[in-house]
Amino acid sequence: MGTRDFIRERFFPHMWCPGCGHGTVLNCLIRAVESLGLDKSQIVMASGIGCSARISGYVDFHSLHTLHGRALAFATGVKFSQPALTLIVPMGDGDALAIGGNHFIHAARRNIDVTAIVMNNRTYGMTGGQYSPMSLMGDCGTTAPMGTLERPFDAVKLATAAGATFVARTTTYHAREGISILKRAIAHKGFSMVEFLSQCPTQYGRRNGLADAPSMLEYFKTHTVPIGSEKAQEDPNILERGIFVDEDRPEYCESYAAMVQKMAPSSGDGGAL
């Protein structure tokens, strides 16, 4: 089984722009899945709507291209009704944290065993470059011509506060780290969130002084540091990378199965209240 066995080759070259980071996220993801030795027929990829969401069409898993912001709700239904499946849920930053925010925090709170990948390019690429909840304050977008007035979420803190038991951040420059983090995230039993900074030269880069893929990755290289590095404390524009949370707490489907064991089977006791 080579890397190529995990993609639907007939659809390549894919639809993302030249230099789009989402292709690198896909690249890292299939290598993580390959090295975990997972059975393709036991993996369901549920994605939302947007550039990031098209990733589910390119993987040779069971693929579920859902509604904008709702991938985690669909994925909860799939996983909870068939816990043997491995659920991978790639989403855009707007997909996961704007319209999808409510499902994001509740899936984390439930600690259901799915792997949420926030492909964060700090824009809405598919619709032409509007700013998103993850755009940096002052970033320009087609709906923030003078620069956004809003602070982005800290996706790591948000997921942690909501109860995610595996939380990490990486970037498409640090592909090797990305692969190893995705491996651990998928293998983790419980809600895993990986924020994957991913470059969008076409819609975000051009409007924010980073007009091509190399300059965007240079930015990731120089503006992220391993967790605990001094620089992150000194400069708020520097983000920490790595695994922030990796703990074990009861996983939702397992807790449910345990509860069912304790319940007496239905004795047909007249049933309804």
Partner: peptide, 10 residues
């Protein structure tokens, strides 16, 4: 959304 996911697993 969840019941759609559930239906797809049979």
């Amino acid at each position: 959304c969840a019941i759609i996911g559930g239906s797809l697993t049979g």
